[in-house]
Simulated assay, not measured.
Amino acid sequence: MWWGIHSEHLHPYGEGGCVILGEKDESMVRNIVLNDTEIEVKHYDRKTEEGHQVVSFIFDVTSEEYHDVTVLLYKGTFDIRIPEEGLDFKGTIINYSTSLDNLYEEGQTGEFRVTLQEV
């Protein structure tokens, strides 16, 4: 089961208006930089809503990376850089989920899905 945070509530997808991101693999984007941390992405999508950039991406996280990645994501707001598209902006998480909740166990790999909106 996928779990996600949407509007500061934790619930299974499909409840409370929370939806799973699309599987669209956009252009040549393979890396996103949040603050000074580079993340290799598997899927990427970008759109503009009400004049603000909205980027959604999917990436793998191993149990060894789990702590550092979650500490980063819990900051909530980031300096975002997407080198392949020449984009730099400040954004905040509007949706976040992970496929596993046991990444603290050795040898696991989970998929994280994140949506950021320009602020």
Rank of each mutant, 00 (worst) to 15 (best):
G14I: 00
L10R: 10
G76N: 09
E65T: 09
C18D: 06
I39W: 02
F78T: 03
L72G: 04
G22R: 01
S7Y: 13
G16P: 11
W3L: 13
S99F: 03
K75Q: 11
K90S: 14
T48N: 09
R81W: 03
M28A: 14
V33H: 08
N35H: 09
V54S: 00
H6T: 10
D36C: 07
I82G: 00
G22T: 05
N31T: 13
V69N: 01
L21Y: 05
S99C: 07
I94N: 01
V55G: 00
D25M: 05
N102E: 08
K90G: 12
L10M: 13
G16Y: 00
N31H: 14
Y96M: 15
H52I: 10
T70F: 15
D101F: 12
E111H: 09
W2R: 11
W3E: 14
E8R: 12
T98V: 15
P83L: 11
V29A: 04
L87I: 05
V55H: 00
D79N: 13
V19D: 09
D68A: 12
I93N: 01
V55K: 02
V19H: 11
I80P: 03
E106D: 10
V55L: 03
I20H: 09
V33W: 03
E111R: 13
T48A: 09
G22Y: 02
V119K: 12
D36T: 10
N35F: 06
L100V: 12
V41G: 03
D45W: 04
S27V: 08
L34Y: 01
